[in-house]
């Protein structure tokens, strides 16, 4: 049976290249059969899963150990091509006014956000410290007090997030009294030790928010 065949040789490509190329080829069209050659099981699974998601018939034509050849049949001309596009978000991010252009001081006086389930509080703090890096106007500094200092200790779930923030120029200050009280003075893994005078001064000097 004659039919145009497009071939993608992704055997030497690292994930997710094989599925990226497959997706592009499917979107470009111009074939009756798309042959994708993969070199590892993950790539095989990714390509087959994508074909299923896109509503296309895919078969494992050949396999030799981890390598495999997958054949994907183009959708019939009359069927609408399923486009796996992200749906628009339901909530738009708030606009930032000119006066909020200068970075704020974030004051964290606890290692968890809110009161209620401890696991949720810790999860929220992880998400929050991650989201700070995504903010349109990042904070100028983060001040940690009481159990908040635990966030900056080796082994803290939030440490990678705080390190990212510190590396981009955000000051991370941890209250010395608190570190000493918890016996963590030599375990600070990001930022620097501060004191009540500096902390009070900073909180009074500009915009600050506390969680």
């Amino acid at each position: 049976m004659s039919g145009s065949r497009k071939v993608i040789d992704a055997r030497a490509l690292p994930c997710p290249e094989p599925v990226v190329l497959t997706k592009k080829a499917v979107e470009e069209g111009g074939f009756e059969v798309l042959e994708v050659r993969v070199g590892c099981e993950s790539a095989r699974e990714n390509v087959l899963r994508y074909a299923g998601y896109a509503g296309l018939e895919a078969t494992l034509a050949r396999e030799e150990g981890a390598a495999a050849v997958i054949e994907i049949r183009a959708a019939p001309a009359t069927a609408p091509q399923k486009g796996p596009l992200a749906a628009p978000s339901t909530t738009a991010p708030p606009a930032v006014s000119a006066e909020s252009a200068a970075g704020a001081t974030v004051f964290l006086s606890s290692s968890s956000i809110g009161r209620g389930d401890d696991e949720l509080g810790a999860l929220l703090m992880r998400g929050f410290t991650y989201a700070l890096a995504e903010a349109e106007v990042p904070p100028a500094r983060i001040i940690l007090m009481n159990s908040g200092v635990r966030l900056a200790i080796e082994g803290s779930e939030c440490l990678p997030n705080l390190r990212r923030l510190a590396e981009s120029g955000i000051d991370v200050l941890a209250c010395g009294t608190c570190l000493e009280y918890y016996g963590l003075k030599d375990k600070l893994a990001v930022g620097r030790v501060s004191n009540m005078y500096e902390i009070a001064g900073l909180l009074l000097s500009g915009r600050s928010l506390s969680l």
Binding site: V19, K23, N46, Y53, P84, L85, A86
Partner: peptide, 8 residues
Amino acid sequence: ERRYERIA
């Protein structure tokens, strides 16, 4: 800047 595309 990030782009997200659903594949499954």
